[in-house]
Design a protein around this nucleic acid. Structure first.
Lengths: 125, 125
DNA sequence: CATACATATCGATAAAGGCCGTTTTAATAC
DNA sequence: GTATTAAAACGGCCTTTATCGATATGTATG
């Protein structure tokens, strides 16, 4: 493990701590596994777009079909469709097909919690 | 307001609802204001990066200096510095300078809540 | 002052993401 | 079958973000 640490960083740690080897080890132990980070990353990437946030906010009140979301976003059909696809892939929305319409709804209430907490966090800054 | 709605969308709504004008109005009322969306967007953009997620996870246990975070991320100094800058700008971390070291810490416990909820959400999908 | 070192910023390049016209698919009605 | 229409997928173009070497800034120490 220690071999992967650049020499310059090692020297820095040598100066900072009495037992740099131990410190290195505990720093690496802080690292979450790749799967967890990938999962979190997928969620945050899906939320990191204005249109997608607006879609979720609109779905708070209940399901809407894609054509209604076009009205809410005031954007072209293909643009809205691709954002809906991303939200669905991320598990943030679920769909229900009825005839030629596809209805979208919040897939998990945790999605709404994320929106609320982010709002509160930004407001308190 | 209605003038901004494309004719094709209006026709769709005409077919869907008895009172399309009313429906249009209520759809627009669902839209949150720009300030709120911008605030949420800022938070989620800051979280939408693997390195930045790893930094926050590492800071769960307490403050770390930039040089220690270089070890955790195993990335060049300038790369780490720019991610730290973004996290600070977003209000997710705060800093404390001591001599030539800058110590970083979680700026708001809401940041940790976001990480946890995102993890749980992805796990349940 | 000069030197050393941690951190921050700059700038050029590379990679990722978003936009949207067009085309295709799927469902319905005639 | 054909026509219509909502939604999804494709593809080229453009904007944004990430990376990282080089340079600058700030803070000690001698």
């Amino acid at each position: 493990m220690s071999d992967s640490v650049p020499e310059s960083t090692r020297q820095t740690l040598d100066r900072l701590y009495e037992d740099p080897e131990n410190r290195l080890t505990s720093l690496f132990e802080l690292a979450p596994d790749d799967e967890q980070v990938d999962a979190q990353l997928g969620v945050f990437k899906a939320l990191a777009n204005e249109h997608r946030i607006r879609i979720l906010e609109a779905l708070k009140e209940g399901e809407l079909c894609a054509c209604e979301l076009q009205v809410v976003l005031d954007a072209p059909q293909s643009t809205v469709a691709s954002h809906l696809r991303e939200l669905k892939d991320a598990g943030l929305v679920k769909t229900r097909r009825q005839g030629k319409w596809t209805y979208y709804r919040i897939g998990d209430t945790a999605a709404l919690q994320l929106l609320e907490i982010a709002h509160a966090l930004a407001a308190g800054t």
